[in-house]
Design a binder for these strands. Structure first.
Lengths: 212, 212
DNA sequence: AATAGATTGACCATCCTGGTCTACTTTTGC
DNA sequence: GCAAAAGTAGACCAGGATGGTCAATCTATT
């Protein structure tokens, strides 16, 4: 990557990055077209290969950019004081959705990347990716209070079942809101509905006071 | 579709269908290459366009073929006598996995198709597709005994949470076994692990005898 | 041997690709 | 004010892939 790119007008920089994230996210690496990217970004073809050596190194730059942003705007914002597993997940879902709101193309790009699980990444990126996965695991499980759970349940397995329930709701919501822009939608009813599900999860998995 | 195709040696027929399902499933409609399909099927290019008018009608044929097979080998085999929701889902998962074992390319093809949700389908296929979705819903929920659930839980919501847990396990299993052939793997440990999760689900969502 | 059906793959026009490079414009330094 | 430097555009390139056609060949049946 050419340092000239970083000295660019941030708006232009963002236009290029966004156009590329969208193209790579929708088409995958092979099928993504640099022609479409430059047209959508409103720059000449020459500039892209002035800033970046070639398609591949451009892709790697975007990957690193996205991983850094995930680290800074998602994982770093998880409140580790929350000891309640379900509340912790709820909180993570909220932060994640906020990130989805701000950078939808980037989230889609990362999603496509993770699905495709490429193996021939440069070592530095591979390491960063693995480090993030470890961190995500910690952010989800470290400091969780096991005592909240019913004593007769296998907590490790309960973690999985609850996590899957969360993923299911988020997937269904994502499918339902497909194509709509978040800022045009009032999300509060969905958060309320979500929280109803959480109440039920707590009701069945947690130790509740006897006299209810 | 030319009737000549149906009079073909079934093995050859299957080779063509399998090659195409694999190609369309992996690449999607646009990116799928008829050249690769004929090469992989071991037939000349001309034959494909002798049997089928063009790429699109070939694709529609495959779609209909897959939907019919889903109906016959998946949905028709669900035992509606099973009133226990969790057991019903478990049974469906088993039938589904058997189908995955027998026709992995077809399952992948259908999965890709559903993700891409094309809207400009011929009416007849669109209707078949919708009919199958309705039927799948019935196979999952009709005849379920609500009395098994704890009286303090919202059963409708519990259905969702449990269903999502199932999907989560199946997705994780699919990712873990990615690329391996089922017949080379002893699946029993996974079914046992799966059943452990089910025991936990029953434990928390169902009404259990008091003196435990 | 003649005919009819089945089958092949070279061929076609078209399109798109990643990447280059020349020519042009804008900014900078003095 | 002007020359040198930096920034920018897009026509252009060779290569390759695409869906689809069709004349030529092969095979089986009479």
């Amino acid at each position: 990557m050419n340092e000239k790119f970083l000295n660019l007008d941030p708006q232009k920089q963002a236009r290029i990055i966004d156009a590329a994230l969208q193209e790579f996210g929708e088409q995958g690496y092979e099928q993504a077209s640099t022609n479409r990217i430059v047209k959508s970004a409103g720059i000449g073809k020459g500039m892209l290969f002035y800033y970046f050596k070639n398609k591949q190194s451009f892709y790697y730059y975007l990957l690193e950019y996205s991983l850094d942003l995930t680290l800074k705007d998602f994982l770093a914002k998880v409140d580790m004081e929350e000891e309640d597993f379900i509340e912790r997940l709820y909180q993570m879902a909220q932060v994640k959705l906020a990130l989805f709101d701000k950078h939808p193309d980037m989230m889609n790009f990362l999603g496509t990347f993770m699905l495709a699980n490429e193996h021939n990444l440069p070592k530095s990126i591979q390491e960063k990716y693995e480090k993030i996965q470890v961190l995500a695991h910690q952010k989800m499980f470290d400091g969780i209070n096991y005592q909240l759970f019913r004593q007769d349940v296998d907590v490790k397995k309960a973690f999985d079942l609850i996590r899957w329930s969360f993923e299911g709701y988020q997937n269904e919501l994502k499918a339902k809101l497909q194509g709509k822009k978040f800022n045009e939608i009032d999300l509060t009813p969905y958060w309320e509905e979500f929280y109803d599900y959480l109440k039920l999860l707590k009701q069945v998995y947690y130790e509740n006071e006897e006299g209810k």
